[in-house]
Design a protein around this nucleic acid. Structure first.
Length: 522
RNA sequence: GUCCCCAUCGUCUAGGGGUCAGGACUCGGGAUUUUCGAUCCCGCAGCAGGGGUUCGAAUCCCCUUGGGGACACCA
């Protein structure tokens, strides 16, 4: 096993060499960013920041058939939204550019040539039909998963079975072909995974992976190894779905004579029903099947989740600060400080929307009121409440903040701060507005009318006095007043609410409501 | 099927030989005689099973079971 690296503020020591940490997020641009992908990006980012290293975005767009227009732009905008700004990536220049694999094909071909020359790889001319036929034969022989490896490569149409002359001829005639990795029999490959510890693979379990496709583009396996080496990536942090292809990558590093980077394979994130989070689950619009959860980060952005809440939540899905640290709520900076790969869990996690929503609320609570004011001001305009003074809005927000699960709920929940209520909660009206209500409201209105300083404390005092004078409880007044003034039965503390609304508004609304109550009682 | 990974409350997890197995979300209850999806307090609920090792296992080892991943000219 490789010796454990020692980290310092500026990188880490491998042996006695100080290296700058360089990690990459390397998604294929499919047009949407998966929750799991965002977490992978986040862990890479946190690791880079923690160790003073570089966070690199590399676009793995070597599959021309899956090319999606605008996908890269979308990807970058999601990362920016989340605050995970790459230090290098599309648009950067310098020694490591370009960051689109589709623009690096020459490189892969050049390195493939090296493998060909050393005998680590070979040409294969099998047509898809021929491979399918071989697969059929294997199936009939009772082997449902054929491997193109030592078991059959000598029966196939490849350069291992051709004379030099025949090979040259085939190449000259432009016969379509791929380049395959020659996987030796009976080798063991071991990776010291940062999260899982040592994992050993037998080479007989892997196949002669295609490295270069017939269209001249590389496969993931080749491109990822070449680029990670050329870009001087020190730590490959990616999803567990890649763990089983590690031996192929290890063999490639070995064949090139390169030192492989350290590797960390992250646990997967699942639906509540234990299945893999899939884009297919949401394709039939809106309605999510039971037990499924939306994997598309863009959906959460659209629904108005706080970016810090999402980051916080997915960070906790597979990682925790441990060591008696019970914190649940983190912002990005706090995560950077607390994060370490050693504390990433091995087992898969289930995505729990309820906890995300709770965190969303916690993050709204922690947000700066001025920033929220700026954000919500336009929403009020859209909702038709017109111009609202910033300082008034800020006071409303301060009052409403702690009962907001989504900023998007604000207008719906706080409309009565900006316009007189037009409707009144019927159930609450039946319960709270009774025969003696108007009499109490009238007394209360009269009392606050005379109030010089309309403060919460003064209002409360007045209300208690009225209650006492009528030999009744505060609730007998509080509930009807809240309903009369706001139209609803829930909200912040009544006295603060009334103070903020102002005497004039409160009196106006009370008067109007008393008319309604009179009709209702009659 | 083969290889690989994983396994503590419903969920996220702490704990890595001796703990009343801790916290968070959810849920339930209570308090706040002012509501609430707010706040505070309380509670329900867990070491998958079986073998070892040991004076002693949630903790170490093995097996079983269960879950997951990979097995493409996709990443």
């Amino acid at each position: 096993m490789a010796e454990s690296p020692f980290f310092c503020d500026h990188g880490y020591f491998l042996g006695d060499v100080l290296k700058t940490v360089r990690v990459r997020f390397a998604p294929s641009p499919t047009g949407f960013v998966h929750i799991g992908g965002l977490r992978t990006a986040l862990y890479n980012y946190l690791f880079a920041r923690k160790h003073g290293g570089a966070f690199i975005l590399r676009i793995e767009d070597t599959d021309r058939e899956r090319f999606v227009d605008g996908a890269t732009e979308n990807l970058i905008s999601v990362l920016e939204w989340a605050g995970l700004i790459p230090d290098e990536g599309p648009g950067s220049d310098g020694a490591f550019a370009p960051y689109f694999q589709s623009q690096r094909t020459g490189l892969y071909q050049e390195y493939t040539r090296q493998l060909l020359e050393s005998g680590a790889a070979y040409y294969a001319f099998d047509t898809p039909q021929e491979i399918e036929a071989a697969r059929q034969r294997a199936r009939q022989a009772g082997n449902p998963f054929m491997k193109y490896n030592f078991t059959i490569r000598h029966e196939m149409n490849n350069s291992l079975n051709m004379t030099a002359q025949a090979l040259q001829q085939a190449l000259d005639s432009g016969k379509p072909h791929v380049i395959r990795l020659l996987v030796p029999e009976g080798r063991k490959f071991e990776v010291a995974d940062e999260i899982r510890g040592p994992v050993v693979f037998d080479s007989r379990e892997i196949d002669d992976q295609v490295l270069l496709k017939s269209d001249g583009f590389p496969t993931y396996h080749l491109a990822n190894v070449v680029d990670d080496h050329l870009m001087e990536i020190t730590h490959v942090i990616r999803g567990e779905e890649w763990l089983s292809s590690v031996p192929k990558h290890l063999l490639l590093y070995e064949s090139f004579g390169w030192t492989p980077p350290r590797m960390a394979h992250l646990p997967l994130i699942f639906n509540p029903d234990g299945s893999k989070m899939s884009k297919r689950d949401i394709q039939s619009l809106d309605e999510l099947p039971d037990g499924k959860v939306d994997p598309d980060v863009a959906s959460y952005i659209r629904k108005g989740y706080e970016k810090t809440a999402i980051i916080n939540y997915i960070a906790l899905l597979g990682w925790n600060p441990g060591e008696g640290d019970d914190r649940q709520v983190f912002d990005l900076d706090e995560l950077v400080h607390a994060f370490s790969l050693e504390r990433v869990n091995k087992s898969a996690a289930i995505f729990d929307l309820k906890k995300l929503q709770w965190l969303n609320k916690e993050h709204i609570l922690r947000r700066d009121t001025a920033a929220l004011t700026a954000q919500l001001q336009p929403a009020l305009q859209v909702a038709g409440y017109g111009e609202v003074a910033d300082d008034y809005l800020a006071r409303v927000i301060a009052l409403m903040k702690e009962r907001l699960y989504f900023t998007g709920d604000f207008v719906k929940l706080a409309g009565y701060f900006f316009a007189d209520p037009l409707a009144f909660d019927e159930g609450a009206a039946r319960k709270r507005w009774q025969a003696d209500t108007n009499d109490l409201l009238a007394q209360f209105a009269g009392a606050i009318h005379r109030l010089e300083s309309f403060t919460a404390a003064a209002i409360e005092e007045v209300l208690r006095q009225v209650a006492e004078a009528n030999n009744t409880s505060g609730g007998k007044l509080i509930h009807p007043i809240r309903l009369a003034v706001t139209g609803v039965s829930v909200g912040p503390g009544l006295f603060e609410l009334l103070e903020l609304l102002g005497k004039e508004t409160v009196l106006r609304r009370l008067k109007k409501s008393m008319e309604i109550i009179a009709k209702m009682i009659a």
